[in-house]
Design a protein around this nucleic acid. Structure first.
Lengths: 173, 173
DNA sequence: TTTAAAAGTTAGATATAGCAAACTTTTTTT
DNA sequence: AAAAAAAGTTTGCTATATCTAACTTTTAAA
């Protein structure tokens, strides 16, 4: 049983980057970790020791680095949070991809499992409910630039919803 | 002109709590800051010096603490981020208020102005668009517990939308 | 008005996470 | 296989933010 100690943001970042590097190159190298994080090589060594003591990575001095099962589990969880947040930020609330990536990088450490799970469900609901969907998101984009639409337009919009709904589910006809 | 140096999460927390205390008691006392943050009184003193050097608080040894204009501006911004995040977490994605408060406390430091502004607009859009609104959020609650509804229900649901829309805007009749 | 309690401060310690620079090991080139 | 380059490590330093414990100032009580 691995201890459930909360990791610092920094340690989580290391795991995330090691995962990315090991997926790309099979193993992670100290130099590449330093480069990806924009820090000095010397700083990496001490953190590798730290992660190794916590049994989150396999590490021998002068050797390559790989994640242990526990380390990989955590790395995948953070990576997943990252992509869910990025998807919400870009696709739903319309933040530019580059900016969304930076935000996701910061928020992935502060959001917990329950909230991220709810966010997944919420985005899924937006996508699947006939009242929302991409078309509704497009209205949000409109709303952001021009403010609220005219009421007549809303009536038309609702009629289109019905039509799309019927089109998508032919057995309803 | 005050320098635009990024504050640490910790300093932001101090400003936020000092604002809350000064709104409640006119001034903030070292002891109350320590209590609110769950830290020792000694730790507060050094941070008060730090905030004072940055001209974010008015502070004299053994005196009361108040925010400067700049300090208050920052404190209000964080407090605002907090309440926007909490509103979204509780009212939209259905996180329990206590949990949402803890999450908002952590996320308020990582989300930037642009994203928080978009989130405000998004929640406003949910509230105002006839296709969404409280009724749609209620469907999300349903969705969370029972999964997707039947298509026939969707058709009825869309019809109800139209009716509510007409009811709310009598001059459309 | 002296004294006790409460509030605030100081000093020295710890942990995290970074740096630069010197040094060592490994790898590559000649 | 020797020399050079690259990669990795070590050492000693810095900054942030906390702690504990001793000390000082202020406030309240006797």
């Amino acid at each position: 049983m691995t201890d459930k100690t909360e990791l610092t943001e920094s340690l989580e970042d290391y795991l995330e980057i090691i995962l990315k590097l090991q997926e790309k190159n099979r193993v992670a190298r100290s130099k590449d970790i330093a480069e990806s994080m924009g820090i000095q090589r010397g700083s990496v060594t001490s953190m590798l020791k730290n992660l190794s003591e916590k049994e989150l990575i396999n590490y021998e001095p002068y050797g390559y680095v790989t994640l242990t099962d526990e380390g990989k589990k955590i790395a995948l969880e953070i990576t997943q949070k990252h992509s869910i947040l990025k998807d919400f930020l870009t696709r739903v609330i319309q933040i530019a991809p580059d900016k969304a990536d930076i935000m996701a990088c910061r928020m992935e450490h502060s959001i917990d499992r329950e909230s991220i799970d709810k966010l997944v469900q919420f985005v899924e609901f937006i996508d699947r409910c006939p009242r929302s969907g991409q078309n509704w998101i497009n209205s949000f984009v409109e709303f952001c630039s021009h403010g609220q639409k005219e009421w007549q337009e809303c009536m038309e919009c609702l009629k289109s919803c019905e039509n799309r709904h019927i089109e998508n589910k032919p057995n309803l006809k």
